[in-house]
Amino acid sequence: MIIRGNHKVIVQGITGKQGTFWSERMMEYGTKIVGGVNPKKAGTEHIGVPVFGSAVDAMKGLDGGFDVSILFIPPMGAKAAALDAIEAGAKAVVCLTEHIPVQDVMYMMAAAKERGTQIIGPNTAGGVTPGECFTGFMPAFNDKIFRPGNVGIISRSGSLGTLMCLNVVQAGFGISAFVGIGGDPIIGTTTRDALEALDAFEKTEAVVMVGEIGGAMEEHAAEYAAKMNKPMAAFIAGGAAPPGKKMGHAGAIVMGDKGTYKSKADALSAAGVAILDTPMDVGPVLKERMG
């Protein structure tokens, strides 16, 4: 799902240093943060919103509950926090944490699937819907990068996704939504899920996908891209990476001939997606494709 300005958001871990800093930025930008969670500070108020002992309590205690929870929680506590948000009935959980044990992540995924909760991440920098709201730690307030417009961006990486948005805006376009899906090998919202969400999002008229070597998500997204009407371009990072090495992201590893740049570029090309040699090529390609 694309998180919108009218979605009610809570932050689990709101009282921590990063939780506080980014919650304030999000509020300033327009994200409708209605509460936070810290079991040790239940019943207090922090940066102008009530703090609850759990997401379940927040859902009961807040007038009208909440839609989305953002997790500013350390790796070993993330599973419990996510399960709390899922049990509370969150529509979406944005999981920013990197280095959550994968078996914990799979547990969160199984619980989320059963309850129909959309998990975004883990290991994502979050998302931006320019002019409406942002979730996570994105420089949404920088309008040289996140100027509102009609191009949707999907990225595993926050920094590279930000760079792609910058290039799109420098080329004279704007961003409808940035969806950061996260760099872990197992994530809740796949490239294809994000692509379907942007296809259904009325503000989006074209999609730029920023992929990475490793896994098969770009190949799966290509299947959907083949039948999508909105024009699409893709950049895949890691073409110069040596095989068998994890390139920073746990998911960015080439094993044998699986997860290679070529496999992804070929699948996307065959689906009619324009392949970008560098992120700077996005402007001319969009101009051509969006006519």
Partner: peptide
């Protein structure tokens, strides 16, 4: 900064 940007 960031794995994706470094790779790129």
């Amino acid at each position: 900064n960031g794995a994706g940007l470094t790779m790129t």
